[in-house]
Measured scan of single mutants.
Amino acid sequence: MAAAAAAGAGPEMVRGQVFDVGPRYTNLSYIGEGAYGMVCSAYDNVNKVRVAIKKISPFEHQTYCQRTLREIKILLRFRHENIIGINDIIRAPTIEQMKDVYIVQDLMETDLYKLLKTQHLSNDHICYFLYQILRGLKYIHSANVLHRDLKPSNLLLNTTCDLKICDFGLARVADPDHDHTGFLTEYVATRWYRAPEIMLNSKGYTKSIDIWSVGCILAEMLSNRPIFPGKHYLDQLNHILGILGSPSQEDLNCIINLKARNYLLSLPHKNKVPWNRLFPNADSKALDLLDKMLTFNPHKRIEVEQALAHPYLEQYYDPSDEPIAEAPFKFDMELDDLPKEKLKELIFEETARFQPGYRS
């Protein structure tokens, strides 16, 4: 834990890192770190609560700039109880001085990944967590956004079992017609939660990839272990087919990539493993919904509104309290091709509203 900075004593240090967030945020305490930044909790002297502050230093890398800009653009436009918001952003007053960006968010005690390492969940908890994931996802999908990296560590939890989806750095506007060349190379989302079509096709992607990830998360809540822990690309596919069985001819016809289709045709026939054999203690309604989410063919996979209306979630289902976005989200430009200098300018502009004396 960093010592509390005395008023006016300059930035606090946390594990050798400068955290320049005073005077409003003090009493910093280390939480963890990701690929390009550290997260601390801090005391907000204005709202009198502890908050989470993520320090991001992305400006050396085009990919990190892209992810940072995506996350900020999306989260500043989203407003939903099951999606983490941005409360404040701290950065230098000029673009030349801006080396880091500090993002202030609600402090959540833990995440689903940490929880599943230590606790076996009751059916009631599984049901409530799944409902909140789908409630947040309904809003995301209504904005025409794909999260693309749903996994237990991106689901934040607090002691009252509130759940918030975080990390929109890989999110995209849904565009089933656009052929994202190089899709697989830039697709760094965790393999275990990846839909089979991501490994088999490169053309376009749809909201059904997020539903697949939610199915993987439900299976993990039922058993405290990942359902498809593939060691590499082909191993991942083999794990999936080992449980779902061989795809039907109709399902194979959806695979545009001939090499991928021929690979699947070359494999020995596998039978589907019954879900109640894998999860003998699970609620039968939970397994019915799991089956509809972990469907090989993305066109037959359940959609988020149908999933919310499934009998497993009937005690929570309330369409009048499951809000959607006001308007579909649009990125003005494809960020993939922009140089990091341009992305830095866009991050600077996007964060201006939090600067003292800002006038829109």
Rank of each mutant, 00 (worst) to 15 (best):
A3V: 13
A4C: 00
A5E: 11
A5S: 13
G8R: 11
M13P: 15
R15K: 15
V18T: 01
Y25R: 12
Y25C: 00
T26K: 05
S29Y: 01
S29C: 13
Y30N: 14
I31T: 00
G32S: 14
E33C: 02
G34A: 07
A35M: 15
A35T: 15
G37Y: 12
M38I: 15
M38G: 13
M38W: 10
V39L: 10
N45K: 15
N47H: 11
K48H: 13
R50P: 14
R50Q: 13
A52V: 14
K54L: 01
Q62N: 12
R70H: 09
I74K: 09
R77E: 06
R77P: 07
F78V: 13
H80D: 02
H80W: 01
N82P: 02
N87G: 09
I90M: 06
R91A: 08
A92L: 02
E96I: 03
Y102I: 11
Q105V: 15
L107H: 02
M108E: 10
M108I: 15
D111L: 00
D111C: 06
Y113F: 14
K117A: 06
K117T: 09
T118R: 12
T118Y: 04
Q119F: 01
H120Q: 14
S122R: 13
D124C: 04
D124G: 01
L130N: 07
Y131P: 04
Y131H: 01
Q132C: 00
Q132E: 14
G136C: 08
L137R: 08
K138W: 05
K138C: 10
V145C: 09
V145G: 11
V145K: 02
L146T: 06
D149E: 12
L150G: 05
K151Y: 04
P152S: 13
S153T: 02
S153M: 01
N154A: 06
N154T: 13
L155M: 13
L156C: 05
N158R: 10
T160N: 05
L163Q: 15
L163F: 01
D167W: 01
D167S: 02
F168A: 09
F168N: 02
G169S: 11
G169T: 02
R172C: 02
V173D: 08
D177G: 04
H178V: 10
G182E: 12
L184Q: 14
E186N: 01
E186H: 02
E186T: 09
V188P: 04
Y193T: 01
P196K: 05
L200E: 06
N201W: 10
S202L: 09
K203N: 14
I209Q: 11
I211K: 11
S213K: 01
V214A: 05
G215H: 08
N224W: 11
R225P: 03
F228Q: 00
H232A: 06
Y233M: 10
Y233A: 01
L237Y: 06
I240S: 04
L241G: 10
G245I: 00
Q249F: 05
D251W: 00
D251L: 06
L252K: 08
N253D: 00
I255D: 06
I255A: 06
N257P: 08
R261E: 08
N262T: 01
N262W: 00
L265Q: 14
L267F: 01
H269D: 11
K272E: 00
V273S: 08
W275V: 05
W275F: 03
N276I: 15
R277T: 11
R277K: 13
N281I: 15
A282D: 14
D283N: 14
A286V: 06
A286D: 10
A286M: 02
M293L: 14
T295W: 03
N297I: 15
P298I: 01
K300Y: 11
R301K: 11
R301L: 03
I302A: 04
E305A: 13
L308Y: 02
A309R: 03
P311T: 14
P311G: 01
Y312F: 15
Q315S: 04
P319S: 09
D321V: 14
E322R: 02
E322M: 03
E326A: 13
E326N: 02
A327I: 02
F329H: 12
K330C: 03
D332S: 07
M333I: 15
E334D: 15
L335I: 10
D336Y: 14
D336H: 00
D337G: 00
L338Y: 06
L338C: 10
L343P: 01
K344T: 10
I347Y: 15
F348D: 07
T351I: 09
T351A: 12
T351N: 10
R353S: 14
R353I: 14
F354R: 03
F354Y: 13
Q355E: 12
S360T: 14
S360H: 11
